[in-house]
């Protein structure tokens, strides 16, 4: 399967371990990614607070770039980018006159969005296109005995009608569990898995954001999780980077390793901790590395 690929800004800056891990793992899985190197930031939900039409125009530009390359599916490894793009695509398909107006703005660059692009996230593509059975067959180091807490992030769960979860794909809110099981691990059920990581308010009300980080990571810990896994780099930033501060706030140690989805898949596919950038996290992933039996280098 060939995809136009948008990695998102954060996978190379805030969480620079994600980009190389994701490209290595998708290659091993046989997913061909063709990167949109002239694509722009999707706005991450923030730009929409300034001007919605601007967000729709910027994302239509990315879709047009994918169409120009003859590709009909745009894959991303960022839940937030996925959510914003799906929302824009939904709006543009509902309102053809609006799309025409946006195309006028894009015409200066010689671009036009014809409305043919489908947006997907690596998590969806693994389940829906690669298939869990194929994934299982590629496992060389099953995550036996590892208890993993799924953490989805808001943009890949809500709103359901934008994400195709009211009709075609009602079970997209269980894919992380399915992937964990396919890799031989045991998914942990806990309240926090469908909640917000708190990232969007960290610059505005840090205390509330830290409470969210503390609640979810501590709950996962109490339920016996060895690690937490997320398909969203922004959730990763918050749950990993701010976990030490959240622990101080909560007055108890947490030490919950937080994995990016491709890192967890890569572990089972036989990659080393260094290949997956596991030593580059803020919270030590050492316990996970040891339990999984993966090589360090």
């Amino acid at each position: 399967m060939r995809y136009a690929f948008w990695p998102g800004c954060v996978s190379r800056a805030g969480t620079p371990e994600l980009y190389p891990a994701a490209t290595a793992v998708t290659e091993r899985l046989g997913m061909e990614l063709i990167e949109l190197d002239q694509a722009n930031c999707t706005g991450a939900g923030v730009l929409g607070e300034r001007n919605e039409e601007l967000v729709d125009t910027l994302n239509a530009r990315n879709f047009a770039l994918a169409e120009q390359m003859g590709l009909d599916t745009l894959l991303t490894i960022c839940s937030t980018c996925q959510g914003v793009m799906s929302g824009v695509n939904y709006r543009l398909r509902e309102k053809p006159e609006y799309l025409a107006r946006i195309n006028e703005s894009l015409s200066a660059e010689g671009l036009e969005y014809r409305g043919t692009v489908r947006v997907t996230h690596m998590m969806w593509a693994v389940v829906e296109e690669l298939g869990l059975d194929s994934l299982k067959q590629m496992v060389v180091r099953p995550l036996n005995g590892l208890r993993i807490a799924p953490f989805y992030g808001c943009y890949i769960l809500r709103p359901r009608y934008v994400l195709g979860m009211t009709d075609e794909h009602v079970h997209r809110d269980q894919y992380l569990e399915h992937i964990i099981e396919a890799l031989g691990g045991e998914p942990i059920d806990y309240e926090g898995k469908l909640r917000c990581c708190g990232f969007p308010i960290m610059t505005i009300n840090e205390d509330n954001g830290l409470k969210m980080v503390g609640n979810h990571t501590l709950e996962a810990k109490e339920k016996g999780a060895h690690a937490l896994v997320t398909p969203c780099p922004l959730c990763h930033l918050n749950l990993d980077e701010f976990q030490p501060k959240a622990a101080r706030r909560a007055g108890k140690p947490i030490n919950m390793p937080v994995l990016h989805l491709p890192q967890m898949i890569g572990t089972a596919l036989g990659f080393s901790a260094r290949d997956m950038g596991l030593q580059r996290h803020i919270v030590s992933t050492e316990p996970f590395i040891q339990l999984s039996g993966m090589p360090r280098k």
Binding site: C196, F199, I201, G209
Partner: peptide, 16 residues
């Protein structure tokens, strides 16, 4: 003001 619109974390829970 504090506790107002800027405190929302844009989680979409209310939309759903």
């Amino acid at each position: 003001a504090p506790s107002g619109v800027w405190d929302c974390t844009r989680c979409f829970m209310c939309v759903s």
